[in-house]
């Protein structure tokens, strides 16, 4: 039982990084902007959180700093892709490389040291007494609850239960039509790209203040790219992103458990497992839903909007 509880707890903790980064990416993609800079944003968020807590000893301020830095970096990206209409793929790559490099440079004095402040577990009364699940699910820190419950709920309500959400989704599908009915396409795109970038950067803060409490160059280890694919995998829906992140975390944790319990599977295969399972989960629904329109990408994803060409 403690084994199962430990497995679930680990999965939850490691999946949270992907959930946060993925939901940030979702916001940008829903308004039609493909942001491949998540990895760089996470690194920037991670390093700014560590630097902030080093002087303030307040994990909350660390997250605030990562959100702010993410918004600034996202702003630069949005100026390039939304206003100047540069290639989203190239700008995203530039954001990733620039973000990783900048984070490594400014983080150098803090590399390898433990974070000065971290998030403490926040048990939820009564629920944490549940057998098995209580320990794993309800004795986590605040960012875990935010990543798995509050944010997906908020995003789901925003995108699918409000008029504003309908507008946002419409911008991702057909910006020209939106423009025709008087929706201000570019300002809204700009705003949600910035908001999404801030959220993605907060995944970095989650990493360095909650999961592996220290900063080093390369701490994001490619998880930003997983988050980008997770959004596609989840069919651009918040709850599925969270479920996908948990699944990925679970398969990952299962790999380590298999090694710890000596099930005799080669470690290289176990490291491969999360990606294999992801592939499987991509293929199976696609095969099952043949002929029916499944969850497809926003039609205008990746396309810059030119008013004069509508």
């Amino acid at each position: 039982m403690t084994l199962l509880s430990g497995l679930l707890g680990n999965a939850l903790l490691s999946g949270g990084v992907l959930a946060l980064a993925g939901m940030g990416e979702l916001l940008a993609e829903r308004v039609g902007v493909l942001n491949l800079g998540v990895e760089g944003l996470m690194a920037l968020g991670a390093v700014s959180a560590v630097i902030t807590v080093a002087s303030t000893h307040d994990a909350g301020l660390g997250v605030a700093a990562s959100l702010a830095v993410g918004a600034i970096a996202g702003g630069v990206f949005a100026i390039a892709t939304v206003l100047a209409r540069a290639s989203q793929v190239l700008c995203g790559m530039a954001l990733t490389m620039g973000g990783l490099g900048l984070a490594a440079t400014i983080g150098r004095p803090f590399a390898g040291q433990p974070s000065a402040a971290t998030f403490r577990p926040m048990p939820i009364p009564l629920l944490d007494q549940m057998p098995v699940l209580g320990d794993a699910l309800f004795r986590q820190s605040l960012p875990v609850y935010l990543a798995y419950l509050v944010l997906p709920l908020a995003l789901h309500l925003l995108l699918f239960r409000t008029r504003h959400g309908l507008t946002l989704r419409a911008i991702g599908e057909n910006p020209a039509a939106c423009d025709a009915v008087g929706i201000r396409v570019l300002p809204l795109r700009f705003a949600y790209v910035v908001l999404g970038a801030a959220l993605s950067a907060s995944a970095g803060a989650y990493l360095t203040l909650g999961f592996v409490p220290s900063w080093s160059d390369g701490v994001t280890a490619g998880r930003g790219w997983i988050a980008v694919s997770l959004v596609i995998f989840a069919g651009y829906r918040p709850w599925r992103i969270v479920a996908g992140a948990l699944l990925f975390g679970l398969v990952n944790a299962l790999g380590y458990l298999a090694q710890a319990r000596n099930w005799g599977v080669p470690s290289a295969f176990l490291s491969m497992l999360p990606y294999l399972v992801t592939l499987l989960f991509m293929i199976v629904p696609a095969l099952l839903s043949r002929g029916r329109p499944g969850a497809t990408a926003p039609a205008a994803l990746g396309l810059p909007y030119y008013r004069d060409q509508r």
Partner: peptide, 21 residues
């Protein structure tokens, strides 16, 4: 436990957790 990297703090902490459990 092998994590197939010399430097991956996320994987290392998960591996350590699995051992402790």
């Amino acid at each position: 436990i092998l994590i197939n990297s010399w430097f991956d703090p996320q994987a290392a902490s998960q591996a350590a957790n699995a051992l402790i459990q």
